[in-house]
Simulated scan of single mutants.
Amino acid sequence: MQAGEYDLVVHPSNLWLTIHESIGHATELDRALGYEAAYAGTSFATPDGLGTLRYGSDLMHVTGDRTVEHGLSTTGWDDEGVATQSWDIVRDGTLVGYQARPPDRRAHRRRALERVRVRRLPGHVPIQRMANVSLQPVADGPSTDEIISGVEHGIYVMGDKSWSIDMQRYNFQFTGQRFYRIEHGRLTGMLKDVAYQATTTDFWGSMARVGGPGTWGSAVPSTAARASPGRWRRSATAAPPRCSPACAS
């Protein structure tokens, strides 16, 4: 298959990693403010774009959640005894929120932000840790088969493998484990060595269809390292399949 632009249908088993890298890390408030620049990098989603930055298409609704059942970042209360929350990060394609932690209250006041208080580990310098960040399904959205049936020429991607993304979480490339050719609404055979690449806003801005509640993938565990010396923490991501034109090779 030749490199070029194709309609790309991404299964939750692959899409979770794209969400984690291009949305989850990009919307950590300390990173967006530049506090992680020396170690993890910064973010293109800076606070001056809060409420105006077009992160994706109107179908894009991404939440941060410390309350979802079985989420690896789920907890009842933070270390200050404040109940945790679920909140919008991207709503109708626009950046509307960040992930933040209690000691960032000065940053909250400076940026007029009120976001979830994040539990931290005792004995460590407090840092922001990622919540359960997920792309929400569309209430009356299609099934996976219905999404595929609407594609004339495209690729269906399943499973996560390797990724590459810049320090601002803007330019990226992702691969997968299984790839299928889509012709006239049907899977017609497997492909190999496929990678899709885009900028974050182009990728999410081209999202044309999002699966319904029945397609929402179960939470996928992931780990993320932050701070120096590095510390690991697990989080979870869930998503329905999505379809859009994207660059693939």
Rank of each mutant, 00 (worst) to 15 (best):
N14Q: 03
G150V: 03
M207D: 02
T18G: 08
L29N: 02
F174W: 12
I165C: 05
G212Q: 02
G205S: 02
R110Q: 09
P221V: 05
W87H: 00
T74A: 12
T94D: 00
L59T: 01
S73D: 05
E36S: 07
D202C: 01
Q168Y: 06
K161A: 04
V10L: 14
E80S: 07
L17N: 04
G64D: 05
R209P: 01
L121S: 12
F203C: 00
D193G: 12
G49Y: 15
G93N: 01
H70L: 00
G159W: 06
R169E: 08
T223E: 12
F44C: 03
G176I: 04
Q2W: 11
Y55P: 01
T199S: 12
P103W: 15
L8Y: 07
A248H: 04
R111L: 10
T94A: 06
G214W: 15
T63H: 13
S218A: 09
R66N: 02
L135E: 00
A40M: 05
D140R: 15
T237N: 11
A83R: 15
R231Y: 14
G176H: 12
H70Q: 13
A83G: 03
R54H: 03
T144F: 15
H61R: 14
S244K: 13
D48F: 15
F203L: 11
G41N: 09
R91P: 08
